[in-house]
């Protein structure tokens, strides 16, 4: 579904002529139903790799294909469509919009491209998912009225609303307490198996990583699979 071919990413700095190499010719294939964990120390480039996978960032070298389409050849409109329809993001900082309530935050991804019918379906889907995550009674609450865990669960539902092919989660439990973290982690797996979608999780939590079928470690720009 997604293939990365010798992806590199480096940042310019005054002190180094070559720049800091964050990702060094990484190649990776992700298929439907894969659940992948990427671990590594802070600053190893895990989030960078995830951002490239989600087309939020552009690699310095290499190529990426999403369902056989070369990503670097897509324009902004096509990329936006891809992100909207095919990818679901879950950020460490939930990034819920404070002016929208739970239900509205969940339905936000529906606005750009959905038809009337699709919007109606999305509404039903949203209610169903919110019920699944135990937030059906909170649909009218605003993010400032929710706990960290609740906010993250809303983020999960938002990421699922357009039935994406892949979920990309960047430290989804990073700012949560142990209980909430466990809840969110289980939720992710549950939804991934149920919806049969790919899931890539960047985490420094081994507990969460162990829940994924495939595990990689990102060290010195290289991706190393481990068990």
């Amino acid at each position: 579904m997604i293939s990365l071919e010798k992806i590199s990413k480096h940042y310019q700095s005054k002190s180094s002529q070559k720049g800091n190499i964050v990702l060094d010719e990484i190649s990776l294939s992700i298929n439907k139903n894969d659940s992948i964990a990427i671990v590594g120390p802070s600053g190893s480039g895990k989030s960078t790799l995830l951002n490239i996978l989600g087309t939020l960032d552009v690699p310095s070298n290499g190529s990426m294909k999403f369902q056989d389409a070369a990503v670097d050849l897509l324009d902004d409109k096509e990329l936006s469509l891809l992100r909207n329809q095919k990818v679901g993001f879950i950020f460490q900082m939930h990034h819920l919009l404070p002016q929208l309530n739970v239900l509205e935050n969940v339905l936000l991804p529906v606005i750009p491209n959905a038809s009337k019918k699709e919007k109606k379906d999305a509404m039903n889907r949203a209610m169903k998912l919110l019920k699944q995550v135990g937030l059906e009674d909170h649909i009218h609450k605003f993010p400032t009225q929710l706990s960290g865990g609740e906010c993250q669960r809303v983020t999960v539902v938002r990421a699922m609303i357009n039935k994406p092919d892949i979920i990309l989660a960047d430290e989804p439990t990073g700012s949560l307490d142990q209980n909430s973290a466990a809840q969110v982690g289980d939720l992710l797996i549950e939804l991934q198996e149920e919806q049969k979608i790919a899931l890539v999780v960047v985490t420094h939590s081994l507990e969460l990583a162990n829940k994924m079928k495939i595990k990689y470690r990102l060290e010195k720009g290289k991706l190393i699979q481990f068990n």
Partner: peptide
């Protein structure tokens, strides 16, 4: 800013 980033991440184009 972050709201703008989220909208982009959620598939809103620049134009939108």
């Amino acid at each position: 800013k972050s709201e703008t980033g989220v909208l982009s991440a959620l598939g809103f184009s620049q134009k939108q």
